[in-house]
Design a protein around this nucleic acid. Structure first.
Length: 465
RNA sequence: GCUCCCAUCGUCUAGUGGCCUAGGACACAGCCCUCUCAAGGCUGGUACACGAGUUCGAAUCUCGUUGGGAGCGCCA
């Protein structure tokens, strides 16, 4: 039997890292088993669902590379099917019309909670079958009255629920529209889902769903309830830490593989390995190795992993992201050689693509002045003859290569009987605008002779106008 | 309140009765490397929530306590 998993977000908010982690585990499980990953948009709440939110989910999934093998399916387009099942259940006596008013229900709930009981519908309409013309009603599922349901959860192990604790849940509202738990059941059955991977906030819904699945004559899928992701402070994930759209991470210069790598290690591990390629994740991932306890979102580790992935990524991949980041800084370039060169030279010193674009700006446009402290320290009268010597030697250099440039710097430092730093730092500030850059020889090489000489001259003019 | 879930360094985790004076990673501190910044290497501190029990032996098994979380909608 081939594995079929699904990710079923509801487009009522954004796709944040909690949702992505669920999608990832579901996707990985399918991929690991050569199965099918299905995307299903649960938009039955017409009030809160929006097309924009749907689009953001689709865009996010695409950016992450979590592509669906089937779907996206939309529940709003399956209304006829849900109605069909409701009618069938009504006819078969598996469901019934309930004429209780909201007021009655609210009162019942309040009374039960006051009496320290689990609030649940009392089944008042369960046996009175007569149809009351013109009176609004909801449809309830006839949950078994006794016995228990065992959820053989792949991460939690067997969890037992007594049917006496469950009640007859509403499957159709008084306006006739079907409700969430019911739609999920019909869909999971119709779509032949074999493994349901979702957040453990759904664990309590599972016994009801299993009962309905049985009413449908379907074999319940295997369930795996993932632990939640908490905010960095250990509290519920909030907008302050992580509960932002995944696309925000794209804007901030994160690589999809890094975000996925970070998320896969939340509640799952493979020995001591921290850095995974997508292929390794697929190869090693197993739902049985997933933890039961919730984990806190740690932005610092995400950042570290992003750098690891930047260090390992092909220059061509980095170049694409770097170009986008530069564009948002209003620097537009198609210079692939420079883009890849900068990516290679900065890959060990940037934690994000955004940072890479910011710190490498001087490769792409004229520097807009010198950083004050560095200029004060290095662009001094004493540096003037050194800069002059650099200009002359670099101008005369037969081959514009890092090794040759390096030789020029060492030669000048011996000539002036000073340390390398006394030559390299003024050069660095002159050429980059600050005292921080990759190794100066490779930086100068990448910058090119024309730009380097022009900036050296500009630095001379700055010292002695 | 009721039902269900969870519990190892600050954080992510390894650990499934002896390899544990508890390992790795992030972060932090120091050192090395060094033309700056990184990357890398080395070193350091900090954890089995608590209490009983089972056992020759428990982070690992059992029970309880405490603490956290989720659900209890004509929301999903």
């Amino acid at each position: 039997m081939t594995v079929r998993t699904r990710f079923a977000p509801s487009p009522t908010g954004m796709l944040h890292i909690g949702g992505v982690r669920t999608a990832l585990f579901s996707w990985l499980y399918a991929k690991h088993h050569g199965g099918t990953f299905i995307l299903r948009v649960e938009d039955t709440d017409r009030e809160r669902s929006t097309d924009e939110a749907t689009q953001v989910i689709l865009d996010g999934m695409q950016w992450l590379g979590l592509t669906a093998d089937e779907g996206p399916y939309y529940q709003t387009r399956r209304m006829d099917r849900y109605r069909e099942v409701i009618e069938q259940w009504l006819a078969e006596g598996k469901a019934y019309r309930c004429y209780c008013t909201k007021e009655h229900l609210d009162e019942l709930r309040a009374r039960q909670m006051a009496a320290k009981q689990n609030p649940r519908y009392d089944g008042r309409c369960r046996e009175c079958a007569e149809h009351r013309e013109g009176v609004p009603y909801v449809v309830r599922f006839k949950n078994p009255l006794d016995g228990s349901v065992v959820v053989d959860d792949q991460v939690h192990g067997p969890v037992v629920f007594e049917n006496t604790q469950l009640d007859d849940l509403i499957i159709a509202r008084s306006d006739g529209t079907p409700t969430y738990n019911f739609c999920v059941v019909v869909d999971d059955s119709d779509m032949a889902i074999t493994h349901v991977v979702r957040g453990d906030d759904h664990l309590n819904n599972t016994p009801r769903q299993i009962n309905m699945l049985r009413a449908l004559g379907a074999t319940p899928p295997v369930y795996a309830h993932l632990p939640m992701i908490l905010g960095a402070d250990g509290a519920k994930l909030s907008k302050r830490h992580g509960a932002v759209s995944v696309l925000q991470y794209q804007e901030e210069g994160y690589l999809p593989s890094a975000l996925l790598n970070y998320l896969v290690r939340l509640g799952w591990s493979y020995g001591d390995q921290e850095v995974f390629t997508l292929g390794e994740m697929i190869q090693y991932f197993d739902i049985k190795d997933v933890n039961k306890s919730a984990s806190a979102f740690n932005p610092e580790k995400l950042l570290w992993l992003n750098q690891q992935h930047i260090m390992n990524a092909p220059a061509s991949v980095l170049a694409v992201g770097l170009r986008e980041q530069l564009a948002s800084l209003d620097v537009h370039t198609e210079d692939q050689v420079m883009l890849e060169g900068v990516a290679n030279i900065l890959r060990e010193r940037a934690k994000t693509l955004k940072e890479m674009a910011q710190t490498g700006l001087y490769f792409f446009r004229e520097i807009d002045g010198y950083e004050e402290k560095s200029a004060k320290k290095n662009l001094t009268a004493e540096a003037l003859p050194i800069l002059q010597a650099l200009i002359q030697s670099l101008q005369a250099l037969p081959e514009w290569k890092a090794v040759a440039i390096h030789d020029v710097i060492t030669a000048i430092s011996t000539q002036f009987a000073v340390g390398m730093g006394k030559v390299a730092q003024p050069l660095r500030v002159a050429v980059c605008g600050s005292g921080v850059s990759p190794p100066i020889d490779t930086t100068v090489e990448l910058l090119g002779r024309v730009v380097t000489l022009a900036r050296l001259q500009r630095a001379q003019a700055f010292i002695a106008p």
